[in-house]
Design a protein around this nucleic acid. Structure first.
Length: 460
DNA sequence: GCATGATCATGC
DNA sequence: GCATGATCATGC
């Protein structure tokens, strides 16, 4: 069969794939026909079998657009060229901004053999060096051939972010080496994550080499935050935009956490007013990005610059205030619950899970007297341990089930001591949101209990 | 106008 | 003193 691309050339495959950009499969095939025919000589948009579910669009694309049959999944998609095809869905937010809808799953981990691999010679690197990304707008009402494809490009994570990808890989593998595969969490790492694999917890338990405990089967993935970053970087390149970044990690030896601690250390013990004076930023603690701005400046970025790692991993900067009694005052709020969306979501694809498996950067202030200004006590990086995620999963499932059945009155409360709770988060009590039942209910959010936040600080 | 980080007000 | 519901303030 004549291909319209050279199966041995990444560039050729990419260029062929790029005819999908700002277009859709149906349109691109028409364009291709004008240039000399279909990739396989076929002219049908109808695949040999019906594809559906996760990965369905990818399989459809391989057959209908690239003229390949999906007979094997373990081989690289374009084996001869060393290129892996990944279709990745996007969604539009209410304000029109575009976000990745999901993580990109990169292949399952074998706990038993991975402990003998080095990063350079790893299965991960050999399989995922170059990935051909086809970003499309998720739309369950459209046929695959009509899905909008705004961006197509190759991502080489080693070239772009090699130092941190390597650290992430080694962090995950080290947990297996320490006999702690069952404690791996997607929140452990910045870009490369370890997401769970398998339908249920019960059927997805695997043995690990250095512990008798079974661990949840896991796959490497690009975390959803990193997928957002990839999309943004590739889009900026396509549109010839340049963004000014300050990189914290610039050699294999640099540790994000260490550098950040060093940069913050001169400011520990100072009150916020003094810090603002030194950094020459106005003291406006009510401004929404006030603490993000302080962080940026302390880490050496100008107002118009971004800290690369914070943006690429979407590290959540949160301030915590400790009162004279040693306790923190408030619970920590998260995004409001979209009642109509949550009922269709699985826990591990939910907004709350994505937020909780981000890395957190806590800026902790305290004061010894209610009238004293807050003093910077310390900063810590944190991510939620796997066992706590399991608890929050129950809170989420409870909310998920209650929303599905139309019960908006009996969510898990702070006093239930389940790490997280649900409570109102709105402009006022008339600020409501549509539900799957077609009614309107007060806007609510998930919150992390303030007791839990205090426990984190005590143990950190 | 809306989302969200922050904080208040009430009542047990 | 704390949980819970409610609301404010600001940026985009």
């Amino acid at each position: 069969m004549p291909y319209l691309y050279d199966v041995n050339s990444k560039e050729s495959i990419r260029d062929f794939a790029r005819m999908l950009e700002d277009s859709c499969v149906a349109e691109a095939l028409e364009k291709n026909a004008m240039y000399g025919g279909m990739p396989t000589g076929e002219s049908s948009l109808v695949p040999s079998k019906e594809y559906s579910g996760k990965g369905g669009f990818g399989q459809y694309l391989e057959e209908v657009y690239f003229g390949k049959r999906n007979d094997s999944y373990s081989r690289a998609d374009f084996e001869a060229a060393g290129l892996e095809l990944k279709t990745t869905p996007l969604k539009k937010l209410g304000n029109g901004e575009v976000r990745a809808k999901e993580r990109i799953v990169l292949g399952i981990m074998d706990f038993m053999t991975i402990v003998n691999e080095s990063f350079e010679n790893s299965h991960f690197v050999s399989k995922n060096l170059d990935i051909l990304l086809v970003f499309y707008f998720h739309d369950s009402l459209k046929e695959y051939c009509n899905l909008d494809i705004p961006l197509v490009d190759i991502w080489n994570c080693i070239k772009e972010d090699g130092y941190q990808i390597r650290k992430d890989w080694e962090y995950i593998v080290n947990k297996v080496k320490e006999g702690r595969a069952h404690e791996i969490s997607e929140g452990d790492t910045l870009y490369l994550g370890a997401c769970t694999k398998g339908a249920t917890r019960e059927t997805s338990q695997r043995e690990q080499p250095f512990s008798p405990l079974l661990a949840h089967a896991r796959a490497f993935c690009y975390k959803v935050q990193y997928v957002n970053h990839i999309y943004q970087v590739l889009l900026d390149r396509k549109q010839n935009r340049t963004v000014s970044y300050v990189h914290i990690i610039n050699s294999p030896e640099t540790e994000l956490e260490q550098i950040v601690q060093n940069k913050f250390s001169p400011y520990i013990g100072m009150n916020v007013l003094m810090i603002c004076q030194l950094l020459k930023i106005p003291f406006k603690p009510k401004v929404k990005n006030f603490y993000a701005m302080i962080t940026k400046r302390i880490l050496g970025a100008e107002e118009t610059q971004q800290i690369y790692e914070f943006q690429a991993a979407d590290i959540q900067i949160k301030t915590i205030r400790i009162e004279p009694n040693g306790k923190c005052k408030e619970s920590m709020s998260f995004k409001q619950i979209r009642y109509e969306e949550i009922v269709d979501q699985e826990w591990e694809d939910s907004d709350f899970y994505m937020e909780l498996t981000s890395k957190f950067f806590f800026i902790i202030f305290k004061h010894d007297h209610p009238d004293d200004p807050y003093v910077l006590d310390r900063v810590i990086f944190w991510n939620m341990p796997e066992k706590d995620l399991e608890v929050v999963k129950r809170v989420w499932l409870d909310a998920h089930n209650k929303i599905s059945t139309g019960d908006y009155k009996h969510f898990i409360q702070s006093s239930d001591n389940q790490i997280a709770h649900v409570r109102p988060h709105a402009k006022d009590s008339s600020d409501v949101m549509r539900t799957p039942q077609g009614t309107f209910e007060k806007k609510k959010s998930f919150w992390l209990n303030r007791n839990y936040i205090m426990d984190i600080l005590l143990n950190a």
